[in-house]
Amino acid sequence: MMLEVKDLSVCYGSKKILDGLSFSVKEGQWLMIAGPNGAGKSTAINAIAGGVSYTGKILFEGEDIRRKKPAQLARCIGVLTQSHPVSYSFSVEEVVALGRYSHSTGFLSRRMEGKERADAVDAALNLTGMAERRRQSILTLSGGELQRTFLAQVFAQDPRLLLLDEPTNHLDLIYQKQVFGLIRDWLKTPGRAVISVIHDLSLARAYGTEILLMDHGTALAYGTAGEVLTPARLQEVYQMDVYGWMREMLSQWN
């Protein structure tokens, strides 16, 4: 088991955002976390990424993530967020190179990592199609290019588990397809897994291997798309006929 989340609870003040959430992820899986707004999906991701204090246990390959140093954790778990408010004109390459931070934190290791680092950065830039823009300022990029820059950063970071928080929320269709394709290819290497928070149930169905449906800070259902996304359950969670609506929309395309 790569990641085990046990009885995870998070409170903001007196408000309980997560209430005893448990699930796990194996190598090769792409877990899609779906659910209505306010279900606690992003908070769950943030807790695994070490950005929220919580009660309960999060184990990476059996070891409590709170016992890992930040750099150790970053070599295991990488994060891609939905937006990147940037304010200084760093180049694409500088942003991507920072992905190697956790592989060379000390003064000595920084010198030794030189070649390996350059290779990892080049590979990530090529993979995401950002190689020809490597010297461009990030302030001049479009939303899609910026997202691919940070995707390249997390590829250069080379984690085992990738957390995505609505990675294509602000992107048009072509970038959505590109980003999901790139992540699917990344997942083909053994020993890797992906968890993403997602609103779009069609995307969740198309790319996810497992689906976790959340509501009110806890897990409602877990399993394959067919098991989890049943008409009755979606009716209960979203208070509407999701299947009917999807069919109606698709019928317009013929």
Binding site: A49, G50, G51, P70, A71, Q72, L73, A74, R75, G78, V79, T81, H84, P85, V86, S87, Y88, F90, V95, L98, G99, Y101, S102, T105, F150, Q153, V154, Q157
Partner: peptide, 11 residues
């Protein structure tokens, strides 16, 4: 300077 959350995510 790129972002505090990003800094935490890269380790």
């Amino acid at each position: 300077a790129i972002g505090e959350d990003n800094a935490r995510h890269i380790g």
